[in-house]
């Protein structure tokens, strides 16, 4: 076995890169949930501690982070439905590419709407 990894990256197509995206967004969501469980459980420590920690999230950097998190969740959710369709719908494998474009189109629509609403509220300063 060569000690160095093989020379080039495998040049997969839509299917492979959507899988890579699904994996990455999955890990991102996992780490968010980890932190989310921790900060929410602070309520049981004291409501004041909870309010203080949640209040610390109210800054522009976290607003951008939240946009990224929603972007990851929306992709993971829509692509998850696509994967279910590939496995359970008879024609799923045949139309996987078209379904991926649909996923990405829906993702763009949702993200444009969400970003306008969220960032204007978070960064607008009212």
């Amino acid at each position: 076995m060569p000690t160095k990894p093989a020379g080039t990256l495998y040049r997969g197509r839509e299917g492979m890169w959507s899988w890579v995206g699904h994996r990455i967004t999955g890990v991102v969501i996992f780490f968010f949930l980890l932190v989310h469980v921790l900060d929410t459980s602070l309520v049981r420590v004291s409501p004041e501690a909870y309010t203080a920690v949640i209040g610390a999230y109210k800054n522009p950097l976290m607003a951008l982070g939240e946009t990224g998190l929603v972007a990851a969740i929306v992709f993971h959710a829509f692509n998850g439905l696509r994967i279910i369709a590939v496995d359970f719908w008879k024609k799923g494998a045949k139309y996987q590419r078209q379904m991926l474009w649909t996923v990405l189109a829906l993702w763009v629509v949702v993200m444009v709407g969400f970003s306008i609403r969220h960032l204007s509220l978070a960064l607008g300063g009212h």
Binding site: R13, G15, M16, S18, W19, V86
Partner: peptide, 26 residues
């Protein structure tokens, strides 16, 4: 199987491999 479709794309005989795997799953 994670349905990456690399197999279907690589098959020199044009077999719809991922489709076949999905049929076995079902």
């Amino acid at each position: 199987c994670r349905t990456t479709f690399n197999c279907s794309e690589a098959c020199p005989r044009g077999i719809q491999v991922t489709q076949a795997i999905a049929e076995v799953k079902q």
